[in-house]
Design a binder for these strands. Structure first.
Length: 602
RNA sequence: CGGGGCGUAGCGCAGCCUGGUUAGCGCACCAGACUGGGGGUCUGGUGGUCGUGGGUUCAAAUCCCGCCGCCCCGACCA
């Protein structure tokens, strides 16, 4: 095979360039699917030689994977800087005291990777850095004049996930950009939040990903204002709904739908029905010949609040499901854990499993009674009679019940939008970013305060903003691949283009090499497949690793003075005259959001 | 943490139930020849503590016990 020169070592010039000869690149592709990989991104990133597993939820980045990571990192960094945030770098190894201050040393539980130094001191690996950044700021900030401030870092996070999975999508070590804003008041904090929201839009747009911004549960940290940036992908862990008519979109954990209209209370009296052995909604509706949506389903949850156990009885329509996050929030939110209770527990509470109904039940300190809003229509319902082998009909919420009414059901595709009444559609997404207004949750606990204009000491108002950078590598693949491999968006592709000489003809190789060199000189990040392989092998690898532009130099085209340029995401190739090739490729790269390097050509 | 599955060459797998030559196949890898636009063909090769520790047995990849690791479903989460 013709090779350039006799010296096997690349010149210093070659070491500096971002172009690469495939024969000397470390791109160990796999023909077969590794046994342990099941999701598309995991399979393709392994097969394409981007990543390798070191342990459960711990991965190393090979050159290709690292290049993608760098591309994403650079886009994030540029947009954070543009938005006025300043980059810092905090330690991953942290002494106990900071998390102790906010109570998270205990709260975080097993998820925290804990370790001990030689002197017996407790340490942990940072799962997130609110405490550390707050400490950094409280030590220096005294006056409102020093605010607002937005500091960010890009670094590894560590969480001992109960179940790492799907390759880079859920890791125990992962690369994250986390930013924190510090403001003097609510209004300013919201402005910081909005500023980040816009920066995130620019970031996700530049990454070339299809995404939706959704309302989300703010979780244990508290705070009202938050939004998730969800990368749309069939395999996403999160279910979201979005309105087809307006901008409303939300994680199903908190998604709302329009409340049903409420008519006058029915006056039909409650009627007892004999339903022997009919203990499920399906059985009851079949037995009585009524549709499930006219029945009420009862769900008993065990509630653990500060280690105290109580119960919550939740009623939703027969054809609905209860949304656990909503149930938790209805019970008071943070710090509460719930789980389905057993029939035995129900019996202990004096309930009759399989025949529970809301009528007549009074909430107590032991038992909360929650009724979904969709049942509060004034009409009569069929539900359990709170008596073995019997149901009742004509139960009217409000008239016959004492439970609290709240929105508890899981919103479904087709439900009316809470804002505009339009149709809600379901999607699946991968959480790529999350922005929050934290308020004074950390600053108050850690006494991160400043003196305002009036000489008053006040806690700073904080916000935090995360992007799962390593997760986005996988999210991009989940969203954009086909049966042959990955299809990278131009802006985050490891290389813009790959040049393939198709055939073993010396002249052809020389021509391909000339094209490769001039592309490199023109600032194109280009791979040159100079391997002594058959064309089929090269095509397969090029498709697998997902380089956006493939330039094939073959006999047929060359005889007409043309090269074949095929976009990875398109089916048909473009035949481009050699004289126009450089310009064509450069234009195409920039049009698709890629960035050319500084040209080396004079 | 509950349920299920897996661990044999770099990768994918067979062998295990019913113990018994030198542990086998495909891919990859090395040498040579042919071939040269979708993972090509032929010839000859290299490569194994059968996850690990113990036990049973004349004999263990195979049977028994412990441990470790990985994956999937669930509970939990960026």
């Amino acid at each position: 095979m013709p090779k350039e020169g006799a010296n096997p070592w690349p010149s210093l010039y070659m070491l500096c360039t971002l172009a690469m000869r495939y024969s000397s690149a470390f791109i160990p592709t796999l023909k077969e699917i590794p046994r342990d990989a099941t999701t598309p991104s995991h399979i393709l990133l392994l097969r394409g030689g981007f990543i390798r597993m070191v342990g459960a939820g711990i991965y190393e980045m090979l050159p290709l994977g690292h290049r993608v990571l760098r591309k994403i990192t650079e886009i994030v960094r540029e947009e954070m800087d543009r938005a006025g945030a300043q980059e810092v770098l905090m330690p991953a190894l942290l002494p106990r005291q900071y998390f102790e201050e906010t109570g998270r040393w205990d709260l975080y539980g097993e998820v925290l990777f804990r370790l001990r130094d030689r002197k017996g001191g407790d340490y942990h690996l940072g799962p997130t850095h609110e405490e550390i950044i707050t400490d950094m700021v409280r030590r220096e900030v005294r006056s409102y004049r020093q605010l607002p401030l937005n500091l960010y870092q890009i670094q590894m996070k560590y969480r001992d996930e109960p179940r790492p999975r799907a390759g880079l999508l859920r890791c125990r070590e992962f690369l994250m950009k986390d930013a924190y804003s510090f403001d003097v008041d609510e209004k300013s904090a919201l402005a910081s939040y909005e500023n980040m929201r816009e920066a995130y839009h620019r970031i996700f747009r530049r990454l070339g990903l299809a995404y939706r911004v959704v309302e989300a549960d703010s979780g244990a940290i508290g705070g009202e204002t938050s939004a998730e940036f969800q990368v749309l992908a069939q395999t996403g862990e999160d279910a979201i709904v979005a309105c087809t008519a307006c901008q409303y979109a939300a994680n199903v954990e908190v998604a709302s739908s329009q409340a049903p209209s409420r008519g006058p209370l029915s006056e039909l009296p409650i009627e007892r029905l004999y339903t022997p052995g009919q203990t499920t909604i399906e059985a009851v509706s079949r037995f009585l010949g009524v549709p499930a949506h006219q029945t009420i389903k009862a769900l008993l949850f065990r509630v653990i609040r500060e280690k105290r156990v109580s119960y919550a009885l939740v009623f939703v329509r027969g054809d609905d499901e209860a949304q656990e996050t909503k149930v938790i929030n209805a019970l008071g939110g943070a710090g509460i854990e719930i789980a389905m209770a057993t029939p035995e527990e129900a019996q202990k509470l004096g309930l009759v499993p399989g025949y529970i109904g809301p009528q007549g039940l009074r909430p107590s300190s032991e038992l909360d009674v929650l009724i979904d809003r969709s049942l509060d229509t004034g009409q009569g319902w069929i539900c359990g009679a709170n008596e073995e082998n019997h149901h009742v009909r004509n139960v009217v919420i409000g008239r016959d019940t004492h439970g609290r009414i709240a929105e508890l059901r899981v919103v479904r595709s087709g439900d009316p939008c809470p804002r505009c009444g339009g149709r809600l559609e379901s999607y699946r997404g991968i959480e790529g970013g999350h922005i929050f207004v934290l308020g004074t949750h950390y600053s108050a606990k850690m006494r991160c305060t400043f003196l305002d204009r009036d000489g008053q000491e006040k806690p700073v108002i904080m916000g935090c903003y995360g992007i799962g950078i390593s997760r986005l590598v996988a999210a991009a693949v989940e969203q954009s691949h086909d049966e042959d491999g990955i299809i990278w968006p131009m802006s985050i592709a490891p290389y813009h283009a790959i040049v393939i000489p198709a055939g073993n003809d010396e002249a052809l190789f020389q021509e391909a090499q000339a094209i490769y060199r001039s592309l490199d000189e023109q600032g194109v990040e280009v791979l040159f497949d100079d391997r002594d392989e058959r064309p089929g092998v090269k095509f397969k690898d090029a498709d697998l690793i997902g380089i956006p532009l493939r330039i094939v130099v073959g006999k047929k085209g060359l005889s007409e003075g043309k090269a074949e340029v095929k976009a990875r995401r398109e089916k048909e190739p473009h035949w481009v005259a050699l004289a126009e090739l450089l310009g064509w490729v450069r234009t195409r790269i920039e049009k698709e959001g890629g960035r050319l390097r500084e040209s080396k050509a004079r």
